[in-house]
Nucleic acid binder design. Structure first.
Length: 378
RNA sequence: GCUGAGGUGGCGGAGCGGUCAAUCGCAACAGACUGUAAAUCUGUCGCCCUUGUGGCUACGGGGGUUCGAAUCCCUCCCUCAGCA
């Protein structure tokens, strides 16, 4: 079980300062949740992840079910022991893969719309590579092509075997090009699955319900109200968030307005650096984002003054640290020149150093925001 | 010295009479990436400008044939391989 305590509510915004108590320690919120899809923050050991101030990670049900399979993990004593991670863990339900391996793949897009699309998905439309039914979703394994079925009961069962502190209801993350009728139908399904998940859960893990509803205000509000009414331990907010930052903030407002203030709110998959103050001010307590880790592996370092692309040859001649103001283990010991060389030479240690720096940088950034809330600045 | 192969944009390497400022790859430069299938994808990449069915200079150097040459001929220079 988890316990969520709000220490302070901002009077300038919806921001809150809190403590999330899990069986694996207390986590100060707001906090960035590190993405560890395959039971690993890519390139780092769990000790290293702890060293750069991460307290909560999110692993993925779909991926771990396919490989190595929840049985293996259960036999190892659960995810925590399996990956030697001592702090908090969440598992994502696989609901995002319904989108990312479905329409996301078909249209080559992420859940944030970057360019306008002529196509709008309406009711009855199915993605090419999977089949969405009222009971769940038929996937084709990307590893061997074998068909696998994931529905609310299956997802909960797997997540119980994995044994994270916080688990998520199985949902359908809708595409940014989902039209009104598609979204309505999908939302009904997601809501039905939410109730099924609650009933199916036997463990003491905390279960978060997922709010969907796409870009439609009434659906978002209805979803928040419905999910709130079911009595979950917390909430996750999923799906698309418009194609600009102002819309995102507006949409989060619709939802957070309806949710029980006393329960923790997790925003799924959002966390560009510039988004973080906005989502925290919107009343979000935890959020996960691949940005620090994913971009790190692309050679991008986040620093106080913006971003650096260490692929660029200019950095070979740069003898300074990634960020003079950064207190991370990487900035203390390594120069841009060396890191740039590693990235350009495709040496894996380069990916690791940037992942460490970026996670530390993001965590410090959020830490500063917690301070600001405490001081009444935000 | 003889014989053979070859010299093309930063590099590698296509093209072998017109539609070639020259396929493609690499590098370089710019951009994208938001509940992570993919250390990925996209664009630019001779110079100049009033950015255009624009101008200029280019395929080792020089000369020639042709309406027209990176592409054919002559000559010189250079590289590589084999033989002396």
């Amino acid at each position: 079980m988890i316990e969520f305590k709000i220490l302070k509510k901002s009077d300038k915004s919806r921001a809150r300062l809190g403590i999330l108590k899990t069986p694996h320690g207390e986590i100060e919120t707001p906090t960035l949740v590190g993405v560890a899809t395959q039971a690993v923050v890519k390139t780092l050991t769990s000790e290293e992840v702890a060293q750069i101030k991460s307290k909560l990670l999110i692993c993925n049900t779909y991926h771990l079910h396919l490989r190595p399979g929840e049985k293996i993990i259960k036999e190892n004593g659960g995810l925590h022991k399996f990956m030697n991670w001592k702090s908090g863990l969440m598992t994502d339900s696989g609901g995002f893969q319904v989108f990312s391996l479905g329409f996301g793949r078909d249209f080559g897009m992420g859940k944030i719309l970057k360019s306008s699309s002529e196509e709008i998905l309406e009711e009855g439309r199915q993605p090419r590579h999977l089949k969405i039914t009222d009971d769940g979703v038929y996937f084709k394994s990307y590893l061997d092509g074998r068909e696998m079925f994931l529905g609310p009961k299956e997802s909960i069962k797997i997540q119980e075997d994995l044994g994270a502190d916080i688990i998520l209801a199985f949902d359908e993350c809708t595409s940014p090009i989902a039209g009104r009728t598609y979204t309505e139908k999908s939302l009904e399904r997601t809501h039905r699955w939410a109730a099924t998940c609650l009933k199916a859960k036997k463990s003491k893990q905390a279960l978060y319900g997922v709010v969907q509803g796409g870009k439609f205000r009434d659906l978002r509000i209805a979803s928040a109200k419905f999910i709130d009414s079911l009595g979950f331990d917390g909430y996750a907010i999923g799906g698309e968030f418009g194609d600009d930052k102002a819309t995102m903030v507006k949409m989060l407002g619709w939802v957070n307005n309806e949710l029980d203030e006393q329960k923790p709110r997790h925003l799924l998959g959002i966390g560009y650096l510039e988004d973080i103050p906005k989502i925290i001010k919107s009343g979000v307590d935890t959020f996960d984002c691949t940005m620090p880790t994913h971009y790190g592996r692309r050679g991008i370092a986040f620093i106080s003054s913006g971003r650096l692309d260490l692929n660029k040859a200019v950095f070979l001649k740069d003898k300074g640290p990634l960020d003079k103001k950064c207190g991370c283990p990487v900035c203390g010991e390594y120069k841009r020149s060396y890191i740039s060389h590693l990235i350009r030479a495709k040496e894996i240690t380069g990916l690791k150093l940037l992942t460490m720096h970026n996670l530390f940088f993001f965590n410090s950034y959020v830490e500063k925001i917690r301070e600001d809330i405490k001081k009444g600045k935000i």
